[in-house]
Each structure stands twice: as structure tokens, then as C-alpha cells.
Design a protein around this nucleic acid. Sequence first.
DNA 1: TCTGGGGTCCTAGGACCC
DNA 2: TCTGGGGTCCTAGGACCC
Length: 416
Amino acid sequence: MYSLIDCNNFYASCERVFNPSLRNVPIVVLSNNDGCVIARSNEAKALGIPMGAVAFQYQHLFKTHGVKVFSANFHLYGDMSHRVMNILSTYSPVSEIYSIDECFLSLHGMKVDYHEYGLDMMRKVKKWTGIPVCVGTAPTKALAKVANRIAKKFPDITHGSYAIDSEEKRIKALKWLSVEDVWGVGRQNAKKLFAIGAKKAYDFTLLPESWVLKNMTIVGLRLQRELKGIPSIEMEEEEKKQSIATTRSFSDDVNTFAELKERLTAYTTAAAEKLRAQNSLCHTMNLFVETNRFKETETYYYKSIQLKLPFATSSTIEMVAFAVMGLKHIYRPHLHYKKAGVILSKFVDADCYQPSLFFNSDPRHKELMKVIDKINATNHNAVRLAGMDKNTFKMRQEHLSPAYTTNINDVIEVRV
DNA sequence: TCTGGGGTCCTAGGACCC
DNA sequence: TCTGGGGTCCTAGGACCC
């Protein structure tokens, strides 16, 4: 059996933990630059605020209903996530952190009352962190997702923990769940399924495997088997990322090469830090710049470039130099840029890496980066390249809550 | 005035090999 | 007029997730 533990309205709940006056009032959390709604409390959902709502279009509703609005505070959410995951990991030797607010546990070989075990997790997480969670338990990961949804949807009956542990419950659950709400069925697949009359998850499980394979690839077939109760999606253990991205929209348009260069320097710096944190080197960098795709009066421009580096590196100095080279290829003057980003891929382990015969990363940078990371760990961006401003991401954050749990020292200026 | 960010996996088709 | 067969590897783009 597998359990899926999912935090309720996670970002909104994080804000609430440290501010009790927010109990029972509608809360929304906004994306970077305060652009759109990315999390809602139950009260906000009840007001009809949809996921992804464009914030400025809902200002009036926010005001009239006293909705408390927050800028995304990812330091806080990341730290709260750690705390929740640490507690959950004590409930099974095999766990998989699926997202910032979700965790799968394998209960393989454990003789427990599934409903009770879930309730115990809920109580402990709530008591120790303040975050409310729901637990779904079933013979496969996809069915555990379904069970979790039922636990969330019917709190009066399930008390937040539900197990699909019999064939009757499995069929009843799948006859209840709409096919587009199945984990792994997105818009495109839903369209195909509707077209042949499969409306419920149960209908999907009855389709011939040949049809599923042909129309939804092997991914769809695995999913179908999972819903039938045949485990086909394994627990993932790999902790290292295969790609690392730092991309941002600008709060104001960026018009010059110099400004774009500064932004890409900041994003590359941030991405390189993440790369070193998992002890990897990267072989490939992708860059892109983009104008405002919503502005109908101006022509839309998007250009990306892939840089295959002559050697694997995690040196901010080298990577920024490559990024600036790349930018020269994709930059077009006289445009109003709205967004840019850096995506790293093709990683190798920094400790067991075969150097190139001719070209290699400057070996001195390794120690230098180590020292810089150490200083910056407590004094964010205290040491940085001269091409980068102090203010890393320059985002609009008009409703930011305090760093309740991760209060870093103030930035100090260090001359190097 | 204002529209997010960061991931994973799979596949078709091209380039290449003998 | 006629032009094999069987592979591997890589990549861009699509679909999906939260």
C-alpha cells in the first residue's frame, strides 16, 4: 500500500500558522511580481476566486470581501515543507517527496490500520507544524492520489484520512471521479477520452489497452494499470535534479542590453548556486529572452539558445561569461523585454568527473566558489560578481510576510 | 499599470554506425 | 529500370505535474 500526504492549501496555510488573525478569513497568495493567484484558503475558494486568477482583475473582489493578500514567500514555504516532510519520513522507511506540499510513503510490509495510521500522521503534523494535511492510502500511487482527493472532499466522513483497501471501494471511487481529474490526465488526454465517451475514471479503466497505448502512449497505459490496482509507477529515490532553472518576469520592462546582461548574470548566479548545492557540474546551458506576450500592440519576440560548454563547470564566473556570450546571439535591440531565464542541464557528479583532454574549468574556481557559498549562506549575495546588482530578483512584492522561520542576517557590503 | 516558476518523462525523426 | 537491413544515440517539442 502507498500513502499520499498532501498539505491543505499549503501556501495559504503557511501564512496562517504565524498569524492567527487569519483563521477563518479568505487568504490568497500571489505569484512572483504579484501577478496571479497561486494559492487560496477554503474561504477564498468559496468566494469563487479561481486558481491562476489575474490579481489586478480581482482587486475589487479582494477589497469588498476582506481577502488577505500575500506575495509569495518561498523561503517560508520551503522551510515549512522541510518540517512537514521530516515528520512524515518517520512513518515509513521509503518515502518520496513529490512536490513542495506532497509526499508518497510506501507502507509495504507494514501491518497497520491504514485509516488510523493516516489520522496519526495528520495529528502529528498539525500539532508540530500547524499545517493541516490529508492522507490517502491505496494499493498504487495513482489510487492513493484518488483516495487523497476523497479524504479532502469529504472531511465529515473521512476526517481527512481515507483508504481504498477493497475492490468495492476502488470501483466506487473511480465511478465518482471525473476522468479529467485523474492524476496524469491533462487537457489533451481528457479531450481524447471525452471524444470516445469515457467520462469517469472508471470508464477509462475499461478501455482496451491497445487504444490507451496508441492514444496516450506508455504513460497512459501505466496510469490505467495503476487505476486497476496494478502497481506500475515506482517510488523515485533520486534526489539530484536533472535540470535547474532560474527564470523571472520583470516588474518593469527591460530595454537595454546592459540591463538584460545584469539580469542574466543574477539568474545564472542563482542557478549556479543551486548546481553546486547538489554537487553537480553542468555541460549545457539554455538561455532565453522574451517580450510581453500579452501586449497586442507590440510584436512578440522569443528567442532561446543552447550553449554546449567546452567543459563541465559549476563556476559562476565561467557560467556568467558563457551566458553573456549567448545573450549576444539572441538579443535584439529596440524591444521591451519582459522575461528572461537560464536553464542548466546535462549534469555530472563533481566528485567523479573525467576532465577533458584539452579544455577544463579553472581549478582555482572550485575553492573560490566554496568560500563564496559559505559567506553567502548567512549573508545573502554579500559576495557577488560586479556585473550583478545587490537586489537579486527585483520583483514586485507588495504584500510580503516576514521570514518567520528563516530570518537571515541583514545584507552587509563586503569589499573583496 | 498589472498575466508565475520549476520540474519530469516520452516520442518521432534525424544523424549516424556497420 | 533498378537502390538492404538492422541498429544506436541525440534532440526538440509536447504532455504532464505542482
